[in-house]
Design a protein around this nucleic acid. Structure first.
Length: 560
RNA sequence: GGGCGCGUGGCCUAGUCAGGAUAAGGCGGCAGCCUCCUAAGCUGUAGAUCGGGGGUUCGAAUCCCCCCGCGCCCGCCA
């Protein structure tokens, strides 16, 4: 809805500029529009015109203001405040927002593209840890945001089954026993043990190399061993992802692209660029003309393929099977993903849009699966869930065990997701138990609670019935409607910039806005007509909160 | 050493891409609000040289340059 208001204001200003004979340079937000405490939408365009027109911004703003036509749809009036043009929404706009938020098909989005989002793709050598889930949460939230925008999205997991780490898992399985614990954790134990053993038995390295070669050559016994280990680990990883409402639509294994011949084909195509050469037995691509100092190795001296070439083949497949593809990658992949994109460009293949997130570290340093130095996502979820259980038991002692367990699970999953997604991806973070276990304002439970309160009112009142939206004139009521209106703007921005944290910020603001309404505008005790109008607003807010939470992948509890 | 990213009250973060009217939240501190639709809530209060220095501009947390600090990368690993 807010996007419609912005479009109207843009039209009014452009028409007024034409009338005055003024021109602004083309560019994003060249009209200087901004949501501001002084107006629903403010324009500082007069400042931009001042240097060329050699007039004061105040004078220019005055002229534009006089030239603005009074033909409004959603605009109520335009105020001239010094050099600023302040636009205000009319009642009709507020009422339309309410009406749309009450409709079943509210917020359907404007895009239609087919998008592939690849996220998580953690090596199947152990459980997801608190660093991996930053990838999963950002990725899954983007999947949901793009779907909300109308895109058809395929969430994909790229399985690294051909790497050295998987060979080490197989070596580990040969030497040690899987102990029957959760599959991904069991795999991690033998993987860590194999790495530890390698310190005193260097021949393990050779053993792993042989596994890689045999696997690439299609040796049956090796194929069976690797694939069963990979599937076993993935089973555990999926289970963890499901606890956080994260599901992939499809899995692609690296080996697919080697077996299909795609990798060999890609290497052949790169050879035709004339930038390749054999050096010390390995086949390499020189990207120095493109700003990369190091050559990109396409084939090892022993003939086996590398992650990067397999990844090139996968990316070609993705670009052929989508309109857009998005990769979620940790900061350690910055350089490689740059090389990958350059190589794709050389081949005329559409490049992926890459979302990089910075590292999550522990107070003791960065995490490592290989060294067994990490806090697993399961550990985190268990801990948060038990804290949530205490909390709900204290608040709702009359409810039974099943209720409290269920609420604790949903609160925990939400709390973990929110704690991750609220921070901008390009900020390195330090994992903090205190913050992860805090269920107050800057958290999912705060938003879930607002939603539950709205549901509580709706449960106690009557169902939907006619109401007079014009009665909603209180400061908090209007502020809440305006906040609901911003949903489309926020989704649009988050989808365009691929920044899910904008939605997290919005969710908090929406909940805050609802809480003020809840506190200062009694619904059930209001006089009949006002009560009906406030019921409608509570319902609209419930819908907005529910949709926001769903888009964040957080369960919208009706009671908690 | 080079490349990329980050630096905002005691702590954590939004705002930076697209410069604009008093720098916005949370945690922690202090002081209040449950005969009132769930207090996982609400209100008030104290607390900020927006890492430092230069520059561009009518105007800089935001753009440019230099410096400092932190993170990540610079493998025939992934």
């Amino acid at each position: 809805m807010f996007l419609d208001f912005i479009s109207e204001v843009e039209g009014l200003i452009k028409a007024a500029l034409d009338r005055c004979g003024y021109k602004v340079e083309e560019g994003v937000n060249n009209l200087g529009l901004d949501i501001s405490p002084h107006a629903d939408l403010a324009s500082s365009v007069a400042f931009r015109l001042a240097p060329t027109l050699k007039k004061s911004p105040v004078q220019i703003a005055k002229e534009i203001h006089q030239a603005i036509s009074g033909d409004y749809n959603y605009v109520d009036h335009v105020e001239l405040t010094g050099p600023y043009l302040n636009f205000f929404m009319n009642r009709r706009f507020l009422n339309t927002v309410l009406e749309q938020a009450l409709a079943d098909n509210a917020w359907t989005g404007r895009l239609k593209e087919k998008v592939i989002v690849e996220h998580t793709s953690a090596n199947p050598d152990g459980p997801l840890h608190v660093g991996h889930i930053r990838n999963s949460v950002i990725g899954d939230t983007l999947v949901r945001i793009l779907r909300r925008e109308g895109c058809t999205v395929d969430a994909e997991y790229y399985v690294n089954d051909m790497g050295r780490q998987e060979a080490m898992v197989v070596v580990g399985c040969d030497r040690f026993q899987l102990d029957g614990s959760k599959p991904d954790h069991a795999i991690a134990k033998v993987y860590i043990a194999a790495n530890k053993a390698m310190e005193t038995e260097p021949e393990i390295r050779t053993e792993a190399d042989q596994v890689i070669q045999r696997y690439e050559a299609g040796d049956e016994e090796t194929v069976a061993k690797i694939q069963s280990a990979v599937k076993y680990a993935i089973k555990g990883i999926e289970e963890t992802l499901h606890r956080m409402n994260i599901r992939h639509d499809s899995y692609h294994w690296e080996s697919e692209f080697v077996q299909s011949g795609d990798v060999a084909e890609i290497v052949g195509l790169l050879e035709k660029t004339g930038l390749t050469e054999w050096e010390e037995g390995a086949f390499q691509l020189d990207l120095s003309q493109h700003g990369f100092e190091k050559k990109m190795v396409l084939k090892r001296a022993n003939g086996t393929s590398l992650y990067i070439t397999r990844d090139l083949a996968y990316h070609r497949w993705k670009s052929e099977n989508s309109d857009r593809s998005v990769d979620i990658l940790g900061a350690d992949h910055k350089l490689v993903s740059g090389q990958l994109r350059t190589a794709l460009r050389l081949l005329g293949i559409r490049e992926p849009e890459v979302v990089i997130f910075e590292f999550v570290s522990l107070p003791t340093g960065s995490m490592s699966t290989r060294k067994g130095k990490f806090i697993s996502a399961d550990e985190l979820l268990d801990e948060v869930e038990s804290r949530a259980y205490e909390e709900v038991s204290m608040r709702r002692p009359e409810e039974d065990e099943a209720f409290r367990r269920k609420v604790a699970k949903q609160v925990a999953a939400g709390a973990v997701r929110y704690d991750v997604v609220r921070v901008s991806a390009d900020k390195a973070t330090m994992f903090d138990w205190k913050q992860a276990l805090d269920f107050e304002k800057l958290s999912a439970p705060f938003i879930q609670y607002s939603h539950a309160r709205a549901c509580s009112i709706l449960r106690k009142g009557e169902g939907a019935k006619p109401f007079q939206a014009d009665l909603l004139t209180g400061e908090n009521e209007i502020a809440l409607i305006k906040m609901i209106a911003q949903f489309d703007l926020v989704i649009d921005r988050a989808a365009r910039e691929l920044k899910p944290h904008h939605l997290a910020t919005y969710a908090r603001e929406l909940a805050e806005s609802f809480n003020l309404f809840y506190r200062y505008s009694p619904v059930l005790d209001a006089p009949p007509e006002l009560r009906d109008a406030r019921m409608a607003l509570a319902r609209a807010a419930r819908n907005a909160l529910r949709t926001t939470l769903e888009t964040l992948g957080i369960d919208a509890l009706e009671t908690m």
